[in-house]
């Protein structure tokens, strides 16, 4: 059975949520890995969860990239291991250089927490293979710095390589400026690296895995990962 590792930074606060979704909703094998560990141990996928890693008073994720465990995460990713960074986890992956670009404060300079929709732009990744192309997923956001930016040439490369996996859209799947909650370039909500084994996304799929919480669309991302790791 594939094993997921959820990193725990001292200020992580979505670590338990990711653990719960994988363990109790998807019945996957999952464990926590403390930020002071120098090795991930035997694992098949890494989840860098949301939160405020080290307080993030400086710049989100700027200190976390130097933590002992992140050195091994970089090695793991470079060997092709699956890594998903959610919210603060996405910010950390950007700071660690595993994904291109950077995050700015939301355009309106305020933290925003709300349900919204993401259009699935790419399905040939280990994180989206079970999603119908173009499907609008209902998955909430909760962040103050989710305004994705990148130099024009980087953005061009991302788009040409099909690295933009999710974009903010309306409930009907239209990618329009009004659906953009934070000012991200091209409505970008989630991207993969060139090798498509590292995904960063601002929305929280772990908050959208149970009917009681308003949506189960987030499951599709974790189920895609499980499917990739242990094909049925």
């Amino acid at each position: 059975m594939a094993t997921f590792s959820v990193l725990v930074f001292p200020g992580s606060n979505c670590d338990h949520d990711a653990y719960h979704a994988l363990k109790h909703v998807l019945a996957a094998d999952v464990r926590f890995v403390w930020h002071k560990e120098t090795s991930l141990g035997k694992t098949d996928a890494v989840i860098v969860p949301g939160g405020f890693s080290y307080g993030d008073y400086l710049r989100s994720g700027a200190i976390a990239r130097f933590s002992p465990v992140m050195q091994d995460v970089v090695k793991f990713a470079n060997k092709g291991g699956l890594v998903i960074g959610i919210c603060n986890g996405f910010q950390i992956l950007l700071e660690a250089g595993l994904l291109p670009g950077a995050m700015l404060a939301n355009e309106n300079l305020k933290f925003r927490c709300k349900q919204l929709y993401l259009r699935t732009e790419q399905t040939d990744t280990p994180f989206s293979s079970l999603i119908e192309p173009g499907r609008a997923l209902q998955i909430p956001i909760a962040h103050g710095e989710g305004n994705y930016t990148a130099p024009p040439e980087t953005l061009k490369t991302l788009e040409e390589n099909g690295q933009v996996v999710f974009r903010y859209c309306t409930a009907l799947g239209d990618v329009v400026p009004e659906a953009n909650p934070n000012g991200s370039l091209n409505n970008i909500a989630g991207i993969v690296n060139k090798d498509r084994n590292v995904l960063g996304m601002m929305p929280h799929p772990e908050r959208a895995c149970e009917t009681e919480l308003g949506s189960t669309d987030g499951r599709l991302i974790f189920e895609s990962m499980l499917n990739h790791l242990q094909p049925a």
């Binding site: 606060n13 949520d17 979704a21 927490c113 772990e206 919480l213």
Partner: peptide
């Protein structure tokens, strides 16, 4: 007001 608060973290908010 309330969109500035994370009202979902810990995945218990029904």
């Amino acid at each position: 007001i309330f969109e500035q608060y994370d009202h979902m973290v810990r995945t218990n908010t029904v």
